[in-house]
Nucleic acid binder design. Structure first.
Lengths: 191, 191
DNA sequence: TACCATAATGACACGATGTCAGTACCTTCA
DNA sequence: TGAAGGTACTGACATCGTGTCATTATGGTA
């Protein structure tokens, strides 16, 4: 299982085979099935380990602690950091999910949990008048979370990894603009 | 090849097998290799058909025709519409890409093309003073395009499809806010 | 030492892939 | 008409990864 993580840092998920994996251990291939149902079972286990870590790091904004825009930056920073450390695992999950009914379910529950949390934060701040009440909280939450997942996996899911600072800035800008900015008036074109 | 599209509307990509596919045709399994290198080759062919259509539909904003915010909505509408019609194909591409070096390349070139176009539109409008010059054009373009892809595939990649109007509104809001809105002042919390 | 549960293995059957040598078919031209 | 030659197609095969046996080691317990 450590061996799997090691593998994913070096190779793509598509090259991950049970035989190859167990070659790195003193055990034989069938021994694998002692511990996991199949490859997807392994990935599922990896997700539940690393996924928990990630949720911790996002507390500030999720729980509405302090000034929202700064708190949001803190939360995003934590999420980025988690991906810097465990990017390949998330990448493997997202790539393996479409191949397995069960894993797909698990992955979508994981993302759904984020949607739940972000949605309820948005609704809370709509009540406080910080966010426009005309935003469809659930859809926006889902969009922003999907964006995070896609971008983070693309940037940190394999070596060489992207620049954490730049990615954080980008995500933060999109989140803040989407949630907290006033709609602009119509724009004049220069045609 | 029509048969493949038909299949993808009904089943998941993971269940698509060459044998199954050719069962729908009067031909035998090996005949498949007459036309495509392998499954991924087929998917690649599907993408280049449908991808071209999609680029057409995004012209207004990409080419800076008319008032930007309205043009952007037109372009996004076209893209949404394409996905309503061909969603499962894009889904198959995105799911198959991680499994094949070549296809992954093709897919990332396809997305890169969008990034190029959006980036240069952003830069043009930065010169016109419509968009803040402090935005990193390339990164923002990439983020917004990634968002589109993820959301559209999730909403229209399989039956039952989502609500095109609602998805369009969501995307449009995020794009407009990200590109055209002024950053808000610091927010007071109600703690 | 005898016993049992658990861990681990070698050998197997299966399913999907991709290839190849061979056959059917169809056009062209004498 | 009928031989030649190219193309479309096929049956059979080798390969590879998977998942499951029946069986054997191993380590703790009385």
């Amino acid at each position: 299982m450590d061996s799997a993580v090691r593998f994913l840092w070096e190779h793509d998920f598509r090259d991950l085979t049970i035989g190859e994996l167990m070659g790195d251990t003193p055990l034989s291939r069938p021994a694998f099935y002692q511990y996991f149902k199949d490859l997807h079972g392994l990935i599922e286990a990896l997700l539940s380990e690393v996924g928990a870590v990630m949720h911790q790091t996002a507390h500030p904004w999720i729980n509405g602690e302090g000034e929202p825009i700064a708190a949001l930056r803190e939360s995003l920073k934590g999420v980025v950091q988690t991906c810097v450390h465990h990017g390949p695992v998330f990448r493997a999950v997202s790539e393996a999910a479409p191949l397995d009914e069960r894993l797909e379910q698990t992955w979508s529950e994981f993302m759904g949990l984020w949607d739940d949390q972000v949605e309820s934060r948005i609704k809370a701040q709509q009540r406080e008048g910080l966010i426009s009440k005309s935003l469809p909280a659930r859809r926006i939450a889902n969009a922003l979370n999907s964006l995070d997942a896609t971008l983070l996996i693309a940037e940190f899911g394999r070596r060489p990894q992207g620049d954490p600072k730049a990615v954080l800035d980008t995500l933060h800008h999109v989140w803040v603009a989407t949630l907290y900015s006033q709609p602009p008036r119509k724009l004049r074109t220069s045609n």
